[in-house]
Design a protein around this nucleic acid. Structure first.
Lengths: 154, 154
DNA sequence: AGATTATTGTAATGTACATTACAAACCTGA
DNA sequence: TCAGGTTTGTAATGTACATTACAATAATCT
């Protein structure tokens, strides 16, 4: 109750935001430098999509764990960059099916490669066991947080 | 090289962004509900400031690990909310010293309390050792990433 | 069938950053 | 002393989200 103020820098929440910002910035820079001007979120969209071609936007949002609205603008940009294509569903005119373009599918492996390089730099000094534990813990926390987000509902 | 595409959901970078977004959203909601409408970044500013009253904006930015420009707008908002006060330095007219207000200092313990509640919910199911390992790993990664960011220089 | 309800995608707005560019003020060295 | 460089804070702009509100369309329930 008194000492919790002491270790601001080691607070889980701040560590999370720091690591998020840093990986974000560095990955962006790296991808831009490699001639692939897209963000982690955009990468994620096409990565997810490449395994589920033709799903609806709302399904895609669900898979990504983000809201439909932000995904909409993401898809807008990806479509403008010719990395993704929207096609209306003939049966239900509300729905838009989304597909990766050939350009996106060519880019993907290069993106993974850049990301892997940054990842290994970021993880230098950590043992395999530590990395494994980290990923597991982050997965558990994510799960807990999702429960809270969905359960608290009105 | 082939299987790295398989586990998108377990990729460190995506886990980081997921956990960042989720903690962000949930903490914001909780603080708003408790009558303290501020974000984690704002909290962090006044938390850091409460231990270093009167430092300059650029020093504060350095401590927080963010750029001067974004910090400026953060301080703008905190000042508008009467949580922080800017005072010019008499010797060097470029400098602004920043101080927390009484209101901020009253709020801080309540904020920590709300954060602690969310934190313990988020960490449910993790052993103490796991949490310790997590914090340690995140600290190491943050350190590595900072090295990269600073070292790559022009 | 017709009225209500639910769902999809979009629009508008707000926050937290980053990056770049800059004006004002300070410092330094010829 | 004064010309040139450096530092501080700010302004402008862009991205990634969230939240709320809404129009269009579909599904459901009398």
């Amino acid at each position: 109750m008194t000492e919790q103020h002491a270790d601001i820098e080691h607070h889980l929440f701040f560590l999370l935001s720091d690591n998020y910002r840093l990986t974000s910035t560095l990955l962006d820079r790296r991808l831009h430098a490699a001639g692939m001007p897209l963000s982690r979120s955009q990468w994620r969209v096409i990565a997810q999509l490449s395994r589920k071609e033709g799903i609806f936007q709302s399904e895609l949002a669900e898979w990504l764990g983000i809201e439909r609205a932000p995904l909409g603008t993401l898809v807008d940009k990806l479509e403008a960059a010719n990395l993704v294509e929207r096609r209306p569903d003939p049966k239900d005119r509300r729905l838009k099916r989304v597909y990766t373009t050939a350009r996106a599918r060519e880019m993907l492996p290069m993106i993974y490669d850049q990301a892997a390089q940054l990842r290994s730099q970021a993880l230098s000094g950590l043992s395999d066991a530590q990395v494994e534990g980290l990923v597991e813990s982050l997965g558990l926390i994510k799960h807990n947080l999702q429960q809270i987000r969905n359960g608290d509902g009105p």
